[in-house]
Design a protein around this nucleic acid. Structure first.
Length: 494
DNA sequence: GCCGCGTTGAATAA
DNA sequence: TTATTCAACGCGGC
């Protein structure tokens, strides 16, 4: 077999802009492209069926793309360290490459993996930053080791930094893989697994409902389709976007960027080409700015201890949220889309069926769960998002929940997203609700955001009686809102 | 240690 | 449709 190398795919499920893959390809005559399904995350309660299905589809596409280059993908299942340990021994592996990660679990895994491979097996290990525009260690260094906590200071640092490195092209060809690759010790799938292959963990293929089509080719096509819409790209301005749009946002790139089917550096480079020499919006509200927000979230997630919880988290406001058993029934109603507030329920239903929600819809439901209405800890909401979102992203998700719950970054707790008013601005006739909470679809416009205020005969005529066919509001917003405001004030003074 | 700033609501007025 | 005000203040940044 000659010299054997493994490229371990983690995020970065792509051939373009993949430094690790290129390095591995150069240093071997036999290449084993490997993905490990970590049993830690083979759990529909942690990674929902839409996200798992999207991941498996992404692996399928990656396999096909690798085959075009004379290689293919192997998928193993188990504990990453044990799997790698066995494979290195079994196939006498000399080189290991992978993309580094910033999340605590993966960061620790990176370190243990490197140590194991280098010291136990004398393997040459090369790891690279590939999931962010900038090398996070370099940005931290520019800021005296601390992550900036505002966009303004991030932009200052970014302006001092060297430009993000140029994305590399996909390899033209790759070294062959061992055709009869079958490990004696490791659980390697004979072909790319589907959801049915994970039935023992509780995954049911029929439950997959997301309309996102996976893969690097799809990702690049979507990016190109988006970037030719020059006006849309150059005038993009957040938050002036529409959370209640009914058009499935066929240009949404977030799932591809979070899986790494699309390199954020490629998107950045192409975006820069489009906006160059044309009038355009500027960070932080522009499209370019959105990439910087992502970058900021990664930087903070990378360097803040206990960023995924309130306790022991130095940048997180300490607020006496409801949690555990006390919060469970509230979270359940919220997760099921049974709060009795149609706008909130519509968004939560969209989350579950599409695996995606508009940014501002995320804000509405997050505010409702935490400081706005239910007073539940953001950590529980974060978990629900992580489970259902096809574009789930540890850093951005935790960052946003800090923000929305006024736990960090944003402190104007008197500013709230009204559960009956916010969507009304962009969708006065409630089309978004009619789509995602179909039981309410016959309601008159007048009552669509507050169906419990409709007279009984109107409810009956619409075929949906409140309290019977659709729940009463689980809280009285006016009352809890006032109460919660007082609690926030107290927590901030404390 | 203090200064000045803080992407992202809602009601109101024009 | 867009700008103003509300209204107060904690906190990051220098």
């Amino acid at each position: 077999m000659g010299e054997v190398a493994i490229h371990w795919f983690r995020k970065g499920l792509r051939l373009h802009d993949n430094a690790g893959l290129l390095k591995a390809a150069k240093s071997c005559s036999t290449l084993i492209p490997l993905y490990i399904l970590d049993t830690e995350y083979l759990d529909p309660k942690k990674v929902g069926v839409n996200r798992m299905g999207f991941l498996l589809d992404s692996l399928k596409c990656l396999d096909e793309d690798l085959r075009e280059k004379g290689s293919c993908l192997f998928v193993a299942k188990g504990k990453p360290l044990e799997i790698m340990d066995s494979l290195i021994k079994e196939f006498n592996v000399k080189t290991l490459t992978f993309e580094r990660d910033t999340e605590p679990y993966n960061k620790a895994l990176d370190e243990e993996m490197t140590k194991m491979a280098e010291t136990k097996h004398q393997v040459e290990v090369h790891s690279f930053w590939g999931h962010t525009l900038f090398d996070p260690e370099y940005l931290l260094e520019l800021n005296n080791g601390k992550a900036p906590l505002t966009m303004t200071s991030f932009l200052n640092i970014a302006s001092e930094a060297c430009n993000p490195s140029k994305p590399a092209d996909a390899p033209i060809s790759l070294p062959a893989s061992p055709i009869d690759f079958k490990s004696k010790q490791v659980d390697v799938f004979s072909k790319i697994p589907t959801l049915s292959d994970l039935a023992e963990y509780g995954y049911v293929p029929e439950e997959k409902t997301t309309w996102f089509v996976a893969g690097e080719k799809e990702a690049i096509k979507r990016m190109e389709d988006f970037l030719v819409q020059k006006k849309r790209v150059t005038t993009f301005e957040k938050p002036k976007t529409d959370p209640t749009s009914l058009v499935p946002d066929s240009t949404a790139l977030s799932p591809y960027i979070s899986m790494g089917s699309l390199s954020v550096r490629l998107f950045y480079a192409k975006l820069k080409e489009v906006i160059a020499s044309t009038a355009h919006t500027e960070p932080p509200v522009s499209l370019e700015g959105q990439l910087y927000w992502r970058e900021l979230a990664y930087l903070i997630g990378f360097s803040t201890p206990n960023f995924n919880q309130m306790l022991g988290n130095p940048i997180c406001m300490q607020i006496p949220w409801l949690e555990g058993e006390a919060a469970k029934p509230l979270v359940d109603n919220w997760e099921k889309g049974q709060t009795g507030y149609p706008a909130v329920d519509a968004a939560m239903n969209q989350l579950k069926t599409d695996g995606w929600m508009h940014h501002l819809a995320r804000h509405l439901v997050a505010c409702f769960l935490t400081r706005g209405d239910l007073w539940v800890t953001w950590e529980m909401g974060r978990d629900v998002f992580e489970k259902y979102l096809v574009d789930a992203d540890w850093s951005i998700n935790n960052f946003s929940w800090h923000w929305l719950s006024c736990s960090a970054f944003f402190h104007e707790y008197e500013t709230e997203y009204g559960p009956t008013t916010f969507f009304e601005k962009t969708d006065p006739t409630g089309q978004y609700i009619r789509k995602h909470v179909p039981i309410l679809k016959e309601y008159p416009d007048k009552y669509i955001y507050e169906p419990w205020t409709a007279p009984r005969d109107v409810q009956e005529a619409a075929g949906c009686v409140i309290g019977k066919d659709y729940p009463e509001p689980m809280v009285d917003h006016k009352v809890v809102h006032k109460d919660n405001m007082g609690k926030m004030k107290k927590a901030y003074e404390g």
